[in-house]
Amino acid sequence: MFFHIVLERNMQLHPRHFGRDLRDKLVAKLMKDVEGTCSGRHGFIVAITGIESVGKGLIRDGTGFVTFPVKYQCVVFRPFKGEILEAVVTMVNKMGFFAEAGPVQIFVSNHLIPDDMEFQSGDIPNYTTSDGSVKIQKDSEVRLKIIGTRVDATEIFCIGTIKDDFLGVISDPGATS
């Protein structure tokens, strides 16, 4: 799920940036530092949408670096248990398949794939129904439900299922191309 929230961060800025465009430099560095990171609490920081406020800088003794407390608005993405996501399959193996929904990696084990889908090894490993009408392989898009998340300080990993109503392949790249 996406959220638009305000976060705060202490930015250390090198003295060489002190000048007219100190603020721009600060923001650029913030974006570089923060976007794409993941915190266990808030999820993935997708993008910074604005700066709320920049506090008073504090000069560090000895180094000359200055610390600014910066409040910024950003879009974060945090997967939740029970959430339905659409994801792109990245890898298929005997144990199940991996998929990505944006920055989040999701593993769907073969127990959570409908029973009528069989693993087919070969050049392009895939899961296929007995009549061959539905096929899950690399780059397939699937709709899945998250049934478990593991949230570390810097990483979120999910396991999902497609063994439920309205879940499974939503478009087959083999069929369209």
Binding site: N93, M95, G96, H111, I147, G148, D164
Partner: peptide
Amino acid sequence: KNTVQEYICPNCSKRYTALDALRLISPYDE
């Protein structure tokens, strides 16, 4: 149905859950 799959190592009987899957895949086989 909606439970986390567990895996077990027959040699050292170490247990893993599907949440560890990312660390367990090997580049060589499936």
